[in-house]
């Protein structure tokens, strides 16, 4: 089953091409990787799919519905969730509230009920609280519920961002460099976590990452970007052998 179809999307900033005619088809329940040298346009792909920045050209279909012009919050509501390259947790909210915020679009009580603190508010708040604690525990974060996120170690913050996406009841997760800044031990545990999340929740996952071991190990399909254009697509084994890909990466090292 196809869940996401991206057709020829482009983005220019001033005169700079961030992404040019990028296309991809994402099958449900699969883990896909997007790799490429710095500045290749990987994060831009995520920004366009989530609606963080508007698309210049091309179209995006999510579950057979066109979402190209949909505002970001509506896309999140339909099940597109993401993490950020440079962690973006809410500083002034506790860990627990960071989790709850991500579920607020599903809340049913009205503003009036909320102002007067009617029973339905309390009931739903308790349910949300349980849900948040559940997902914190699911990723082993239950101890940190009352803390402020910036007081936590870096690896824990990354994990919290991951837990937060689950609160949005996502169908597809877009993970932007989830392994950045983690030590080898943490990376291995991250791989397990990603696999576990995928299987337990029947999720589709797209990962932007530099970390080759992680990508090659858990992705079934890989897209390679260079200078805003896709230069290759294929299974990990094929990508490893691909001439153009090797050149793009070697070119970066020189």
């Amino acid at each position: 089953m196809e869940i996401l179809r991206v057709e020829g999307i482009s983005k220019h900033f001033g005169g700079v091409v961030a992404l040019e005619g990028f296309s991809m088809v994402q099958q449900e329940n699969q883990i896909t990787g997007i790799i490429g040298p710095n500045g290749a346009g990987k994060t831009t792909v995520f920004n366009l799919i989530t609606g963080a920045t508007p698309v210049d050209h091309g179209s995006i279909l999510f579950m057979d519905r066109e979402i190209t012009k949909l505002p970001a919050h509506r896309r999140a509501d339909q099940g597109i969730a993401r993490t950020f390259q440079n962690i973006r947790l809410f500083r002034n909210l506790s860990v627990l509230d960071n989790m709850k915020v991500a579920h607020d679009m599903k809340v049913l009580y009205t503003l009036w009920e909320e102002m007067l603190r009617l029973p339905r508010v309390g009931k739903q708040e308790r349910r949300i609280d349980e849900k948040a604690r559940h997902f914190l525990a699911y990723l082993g974060l239950e101890r940190f519920g009352d803390q402020k996120p910036h007081n936590l170690p870096y690896g824990i913050q990354r994990r919290l961002e991951l837990a937060r996406t689950l609160m949005t009841e996502p169908r597809i997760l877009l993970l932007d460099e989830p392994a950045a800044g983690l030590n080898p031990h943490e990376v291995r545990s991250l791989m397990d976590t990603i696999r576990k999340i995928q299987e337990d929740n029947a999720l589709t996952i797209v990962i932007v990452e530099h970390h080759m071991e992680l990508i090659m190990n858990i992705c079934s399909l890989i897209h390679v970007l260079d200078f805003g254009k896709k230069i290759a697509e294929g299974e990990p084994a094929a990508i490893k052998e691909n001439e153009q890909v090797l050149q793009a990466y070697l070119g970066e090292e020189v």
């Binding site: 989530t50 919050h73 999140a76 809410f90 607020d104 679009m105 949005t168």
Partner: peptide, 9 residues
């Protein structure tokens, strides 16, 4: 931006 990504209008 992060708020809008979490579904807040």
């Amino acid at each position: 931006l992060a708020a809008s990504m979490m579904g807040i209008n």
